[in-house]
């Protein structure tokens, strides 16, 4: 929320004809009240977010191991080691690939489903609900269900493929299929979220605009999309893209449960590397360096997207 602090301060210190002392007293009381009201949130933010981030930055330049009683400053050694490490590089590339599959597919399919639901009056609530269910479900539990579906011999996916005479890959144990399959699960999970936001965005488009477009001659589906729907969905689109990208960068549950980064690091992703280094190998300093890189990417991406999209997005 944008708060106009400048004008707030002005009004606070504005000269009062009925006595400066009283005005000052009132201003003080207001400031105190503001502090009290914002206080709990600020404390929580500090304790749960800012201080841990600071701690991560500090640990990243040390050789601390989880549980160790001593640590020493090592400078950027962790980072140097990191970027020389083929596992980390693989993990970085995999994560970027995963995001590049998940974001366009989630946004595109979410929009498509939202448009389909919005265009037909029948069973809207039903379609909305079934597409939103995966988002509500616990991903860890759903991952196990997916594992059963994708089982190389008794899974329904391969049994169906086999009955059609098609090849039956071992989806989660094959270097070539594992990342796309994880991406499909990610898309399946995030689709409902994108769809619900797009539905809300579609509802907010004034019907008059479609009428005007129809009278003006833009009545074909693609013309309507280009003239009215997509531009008017700009702000929602920006939000969905950013949130989906951030969630995709954070992919962890499915990897941890289904593949543990395998086979041969083909599904190793940043958060999984971070987890393994920090909590399995207990190399906390090294893990913190991975975290710093991860944070850097996420923040940079957010800023970049906000900047690019903000310029092309119309806010009415």
């Amino acid at each position: 929320m944008a708060v106009d602090f400048a004008s707030w301060r002005r009004s606070e210190t504005a000269p009062c004809p009925s006595g400066g002392a009283q005005a000052r007293k009132q201003a003080l009381a207001e400031a105190l009240a503001a502090g009290l009201l914002a206080g709990p949130a600020v404390l929580l933010l500090l304790a749960l977010f800012l201080l841990p981030v600071l701690a991560v930055f500090v640990i990243a330049v040390t050789d601390w191991q989880f549980g160790a009683r001593s640590l020493s400053f090592v400078g950027l050694k962790n980072f140097a080691e990191l970027f020389a490490d083929p596992v980390f590089r693989r993990s970085l590339v995999n994560t970027v690939l995963y995001v590049c599959i998940v974001v366009p597919a989630t946004v595109g399919l979410g929009l498509l489903i939202a448009l389909l639901i919005e265009s037909g009056p029948r069973l809207r609530a039903f379609y909305r609900a079934i597409h939103f269910l995966p988002y509500m479900a616990t991903l860890a539990a759903m991952a196990i269900a997916w594992e059963a579906l994708l089982h190389p011999t008794i899974g329904i996916v391969n049994q169906t493929l086999a009955s059609l005479g098609l090849p039956t890959p071992n989806w989660l144990r094959d270097e070539n299929t594992v990342l796309p399959v994880l991406a499909v699960i990610g898309i399946w999970q995030g689709l409902g979220f994108a769809m619900v936001l797009f539905l809300a965005g579609l509802k907010a488009i004034p019907v008059d605009l479609y009428d005007a477009a129809e009278v003006d001659g833009a009545d074909a589906t693609l013309d309507r999309l280009r003239v009215v729907t997509l531009p008017m969905l700009g702000p929602v689109m920006m939000f969905v893209v950013i949130v989906t990208a951030l969630r995709a960068f954070e992919v962890f549950d499915t990897v941890k449960i289904l593949t543990q980064g395998g086979p041969a690091k083909a599904s190793e992703v940043l958060l999984h590397t971070l987890y393994v280094e920090s909590f399995e190998f207990l190399r906390t300093g090294y893990g913190a360096a991975v975290t710093v890189v991860f944070l850097f990417i996420v923040v940079a991406l957010t800023l970049l997207q906000a900047r690019i999209l903000d310029r092309r997005v119309h806010y009415s």
Binding site: P206, D208, L209, D211, A212, A213, E214, V215, D216, G217, D219, V227, V228, P231, M232, G234, H314, S316
Partner: peptide
């Protein structure tokens, strides 16, 4: 006929201008 084929033009109460153009 569809609206565009009727050779009519309409002015709406809300104006219905395309805000992004």
């Amino acid at each position: 006929l569809r609206p565009k084929q009727r050779d009519v033009a309409m002015v709406f109460q809300s104006y219905a201008l395309y805000p992004h153009m």
